[in-house]
Nucleic acid binder design. Structure first.
Length: 307
DNA sequence: ATATCCCCCCGCCAGA
DNA sequence: ACTCTGGCGGGGGGAT
């Protein structure tokens, strides 16, 4: 049995404090437990030692029955239904059982739409994207889901721009992630967005998953990677995309910005120095890339997250 | 802010 | 027929 009030201890006591960012996760009957456990583990644990104003967290029912049956003989006794979404700053829809055939309850859909309309951030893990799509939240938006559901999602919701080959997609107010473990990447991404790269790296360390370590090495782009790999440039480019999921320079940009974020948070280096350190020729180049990837400016980022 | 250069990315096609 | 490779050229976006 899952009882967040007891297992998360201090969090439960703090969850009505108004300043706290509240994460709410609706739990449907038969919810796959791994995907459900991901947000519980990331947001539901007390991590105030890493981030003083850590998230508030609660699960809620999607049905009227007091007990929600889960796989493997587990069950969840929720004290709140979909109305709990009205208190959420972030809603995370976990993997949904039988997403292709089933539809989510109307009151949950309405609650989701209302939460989004008042500015709450809506995220999904794996097949949870089907629920977001059912609510119409993904119309015209980029979204992803487990690769084995991508085709069905696109077929059932033609207005959703499904991208099957990514771990997660951040559309600002709407975030979707691919299967199972990609939900963990998404949760860490949310922490990075809210509290910076250092906090996200620390949480990743505690979860014993690979942190998004920066590469830094910048200069060997021109050194011919293709030649080093004994491939033609064209074949190398294709192989790189197949292995990494994005073209070489885009990957390099991400790494550079991630490295810059860490330097901005943990050092007092000037933006020019940071730019040079991570491989840019000038601060202007860093600023444009930084804005594109992180959605903000370097100094603003430092002001927000540095301590 | 604007302009110009450069080169990355990707569609396309031919060949293995 | 199908898959993979490698080259070409244009468009687009980043760098200065």
């Amino acid at each position: 049995m899952i009882e967040p009030e007891r297992t998360s201890g201090r969090i439960a006591d703090r969850r009505y404090v108004s300043a706290m960012h509240r994460v709410v996760v609706p739990v449907p009957p038969g919810a796959p437990v791994f995907e459900l456990a991901v947000p519980c583990e990331v947001f539901g644990r007390d991590r105030c030692d890493v981030v003083p104003d850590w998230y508030g967290f609660r699960l809620c029912r999607t049905e009227t029955a007091a007990r929600t049956e889960l796989p493997h003989g587990l069950s969840f006794d929720g004290d709140a239904g979909p109305e709990a979404l009205a208190t959420a700053d972030t809603v995370i829809v976990p993997a949904w059982p039988d997403p292709v055939g089933a539809t989510a309850p109307d009151d949950l859909i309405v609650a989701l739409q209302a939460a989004h309309a008042r500015g709450a951030r809506i995220a999904s893990i794996c097949s949870g994207a089907f629920v977001l799509a059912q609510a119409g939240l993904l119309d015209g938006r980029r979204a992803t889901t487990h690769w084995c559901y991508a085709e069905a999602l696109a077929a059932r919701f033609p207005r959703v721009r499904v991208e099957p080959d990514v771990l997660y997609i951040d559309e600002g107010d709407l975030l979707t992630s691919a299967g199972t473990a990609a939900g963990l990447d998404l949760c860490l991404h949310i922490i990075r967005r809210d509290h910076g790269a250092r906090a996200a790296a620390e949480i990743a360390r505690r979860l014993v998953v690979a942190p998004h370590r920066e590469g830094g090495q910048a200069q060997f782009v021109r050194a011919d990677l293709a030649e080093r790999a004994a491939m033609s440039p064209r074949t190398f480019a294709r192989a790189f995309v197949a292995a990494v999921g994005m073209p070489p320079m885009r990957w390099l940009s991400r790494r550079r910005v991630a490295a810059a974020q860490e330097l901005l948070e943990t050092t007092a280096l000037s933006v020019e120095q940071v730019a040079a350190r991570v491989g840019y020729g000038s601060a202007v180049s860093l600023r444009t890339q930084f804005g594109a990837v992180a959605g903000t400016a370097p100094t603003r980022y430092r002001r927000t997250f540095a301590r």
